[in-house]
Amino acid sequence: MSTTGLQGRSVVVTGAGSGIGRAAALHFAREGARVLVADLDRKGADATVEAITEAGGTAVAVVGDLSDRQVAERVVATAVESFGGLDVLANNAGVMDRMSALGETDDDEWDRVIGVNLTAPFVLTRAALPHLLASGKGAIVFTASEAGLRGSAAGAAYTASKHGVVGLTKSLAVMYRTRGIRTNAIAPGGTATQIRVDPRREAEGPAALAPYLGLAGKVSEPEEQAAAIVFLASDAASNINGAVLPVDNGWSAI
């Protein structure tokens, strides 16, 4: 018998068209949750919805760029209209930078990475909060990163964005801890996903990171990250709030 308490609950998963997001959406559905799949890629989002519905679950998709405030608000509105409320928000969508040091980072790289990785989950969470509060048992899970725990785990923009995600996680946990909402994050190490890394020519990031790559251990599977997301959103984690859980085979402990 499942102890997650997710049966019949309404869940939004962003970046759910592939990788960690898809694995999380499928895992939530297996626990009996109804899932809104949000992604920029329509083909990927539709494939995730199809996989859930073919397995007997309930899912709908919203396609669009979550850095667009209207898209973020539409995601929340669609979940509420489709499922009658919102219980869980998994802020997973993200993009990589070009591994640029700060002096190499141009405005376009900074704005894109901060917009998708930090501003989008801020806007989405703000839109979701009234419904999560109404749930009385709301849970928010962010996908942070090893880059949110250390300095040279990526370029300046990505690292700053993930440190910001850690800050949002902790702020939400403190501000809403007495109002029925828990907020936590996972900090993945290297994971086999489709997220694209396109280093700038002669970028300083790869050279700075290279000495540490041998310490990172095995590359994890998306399902391993998804299991941690679902756990933190579930009743099994009912007294966990404000935690940033490394899912990295011990890399952060070195």
Rank of each mutant, 00 (worst) to 15 (best):
V230C: 08
I229T: 03
V219L: 12
E202T: 06
L209I: 13
A207Y: 06
E204T: 12
G214R: 11
I229L: 12
F231C: 01
L232R: 01
E221H: 12
G205T: 06
D198M: 04
L232Y: 04
V230K: 02
S220C: 13
L215S: 15
L209M: 15
G217D: 09
I240S: 02
A207I: 05
P211D: 14
A227W: 06
I240F: 00
R201Q: 14
A203E: 07
N241C: 11
L213G: 11
G217N: 12
A233R: 01
K218F: 10
Q194T: 08
I240D: 00
N239M: 10
G214L: 11
D198R: 03
G214F: 12
A216M: 15
I240A: 01
K218T: 13
Y212H: 15
E221G: 11
L215H: 15
Q194W: 00
S234C: 04
Q225C: 09
G217M: 10
A210M: 12
G214K: 13
Y212E: 15
G217E: 08
L232W: 04
E202V: 04
N239Q: 05
A227C: 09
A228M: 06
S234W: 02
I240K: 01
I240L: 09
E202F: 09
E202R: 07
R201T: 13
L209K: 13
A208Y: 06
E224Q: 15
G214H: 12
N239P: 00
Q194C: 00
P206Q: 07
R201G: 12
A216W: 14
L213T: 13
R196E: 08
A226K: 01
E204F: 12
I240E: 03
A216K: 13
V219Y: 07
N241W: 05
V197G: 08
E224W: 00
S234E: 01
G205P: 10
G217T: 13
P206G: 06
A216V: 14
L209E: 14
E224C: 03
L209N: 13
L213Y: 09
Q225N: 08
I195N: 08
S238C: 05
